[in-house]
Write a protein that binds this DNA or RNA. Structure first.
Length: 407
RNA sequence: GGAGAGGUACCGAAGCGGUCAAACGGGGCAGACUGUAAAUCUGCUGGCUCAUGCCUUCGGAGGUUCAAAUCCUCCCCUCUCCA
């Protein structure tokens, strides 16, 4: 009996680790006790909308928590919001999301499951798509769902309230989003739902809707939002401040090195980077008065989570070489361009054709700003032309190309 | 359905017949500096010609004019108030 209580305490403590809020904790405690007694695992839901092709470090926070539940023997439900992605989650939004077409959503959804496998044992997880039930719901049933909540309560939510007060448009479908997410919990019979703290409203609506449909309300555990590399907004692909988990180790490492020292501390905390991870890579744990060392360790530990120790090593080496010593990266792909009978080709055209710049105009500007190097020498003349041969091109700090110009 | 306000480049926001490729701020990019791809400072931020020339851009379609983001007509969209 007391062994059971101890186990409940242990699990609840792990569940609350790193969380912001834990709603329905005491109910969950009871439910967990019953679950353990009957050996029926809890159903733990985490929904992610496949609105961009990449899962990033911010998603990693909640995915890791889901993993923790899996390790405790519960059933993780990774819900791909292929239906909700097409509505667009209004959480934290100042404006309507552009609608995604079905094809893009499907493509993203596929890679989401694959990416989730970085965190979960997907073989033993329940992978679901909310189009399973939402796609089949009849208009009548949908209206029944809508009748369960009121406009005033939806408008209480701060991002809606702000937009409404500010005279910003809110489309009706955006208002419906929380209801659909809530219904997902009904369809899945979730015992627990995880999410970022910006999801609190949606998550709590889930509790009420479940009650309306005769289910016990899920517990809700929210987690801190990871701030993006810009240091101000939450990490999000559409804000361009995200570090995707599929990014190359060099890229990931560099991005992590670019964050401010204040943010570094936050990353350590929210992403739960431990000293053991650092020592496992054969690094000495630096003290707090060595910010550079600490940041290298953060970068290495996180890169290693996705690319292993070798990846962390590669990232570190690339950073030291290219960023700190301003040298060239070792593995430069070579591109060939043909002169097609001409004797030479203009530098601006080359830069554009190699996609080192987006237009010749941009190339011209960069040359005039001293950002373009050919064979390690800064170019000052935008009219420079190159004859057949092999060249090393550098634009700015991080754009390189090895070029073979063939006659 | 009625009345009013408004739609400007990646975002916010000026401009309201020529001097507008369009002020200013943010963002982005580059240079300098730096432990750093942070901070700071400086510059750039439509395309094509390798330039003071052409082309595309100010919700959409027409029109007035030598000339329109700026005026007129119709249409679309957003917000507010009334019904």
């Amino acid at each position: 009996m007391s062994a059971l209580k101890d186990e409940v305490d242990r699990q609840i403590a792990l569940m609350r680790e790193g969380c912001v809020d834990f709603y329905g904790e005491s109910e969950l405690r009871e439910r967990l006790e019953g679950a353990l007694r009957k050996k029926r695992p809890l159903r733990v839901k985490l929904g992610l909308d496949p609105s961009s092709p990449d899962i990033h470090l911010g998603h990693g926070v909640v995915l890791s928590k889901l993993r923790c539940f899996q390790d405790l023997g519960h059933t993780p439900i990774f819900l791909v919001g292929d239906f909700t992605a097409r509505i667009g989650d209004p959480s934290g939004r100042k404006k309507t999301r552009p609608a995604l077409d079905e094809e893009a959503v499907r493509a993203n959804a596929t890679t989401y499951v694959e990416q989730a496998s970085q965190f979960l044992d997907v073989e033993r997880a329940e992978i679901r798509f909310n189009s399973e039930w939402m796609g089949k719901m009849s208009p009548e049933d949908f209206i029944v769902l809508c009748s369960r909540y009121t406009v005033a309560r939806l408008l209480e939510r701060d991002d809606f309230a702000r937009r409404y007060k500010g005279g910003e448009p809110i489309s009706v479908h955006e208002l419906l989003y929380p209801l659909v997410q809530a219904y997902d919990s009904v369809a899945l019979e979730a015992d627990v739902e995880l999410g970022g703290s910006d999801q609190t409203f949606n998550l709590l609506v889930g509790r009420e809707i479940q009650r309306d449909y005769g289910q016990a309300p899920q517990a809700v555990i929210t987690h801190p939002l990871l701030v993006g590399v810009d240091g101000s907004e939450k990490m999000s692909k559409s804000l361009g401040n995200a570090i995707g988990i599929r990014e190359a180790p060099e890229e990931m490492y560099g991005q992590l090195m670019s964050i401010s020292d204040v943010l570094m501390t936050e990353y350590y905390r929210i992403l739960g980077v431990r000293d053991e991870e650092v020592t496992a890579l054969g690094m000495e744990v630096s003290s707090d008065d060595d910010p550079l060392g600490r940041k290298h360790q953060l970068a290495a530990a996180l890169v290693a989570r996705f690319h292993g120790a070798a990846g962390a090593e590669r990232g570190a080496e690339h950073f030291r070489k290219v960023v700190q010593r301003k040298q060239l990266p070792d593995d430069l792909a070579e591109t060939t361009l043909a002169l097609d009978g001409a004797d030479e080709m203009g530098l601006l055209e080359i830069l554009e054709r190699l996609s080192l710049t987006q237009s010749r105009g941009e190339a011209r500007r960069l040359v005039s700003q001293g950002a373009v190097h050919v064979d390690q020498t800064r170019v000052a003349d935008p009219t420079l032309r190159l004859g057949a041969g092999s060249y090393l091109l550098k634009v700015g700090k991080r754009r390189f190309a090895r070029l073979q110009l063939r006659p």
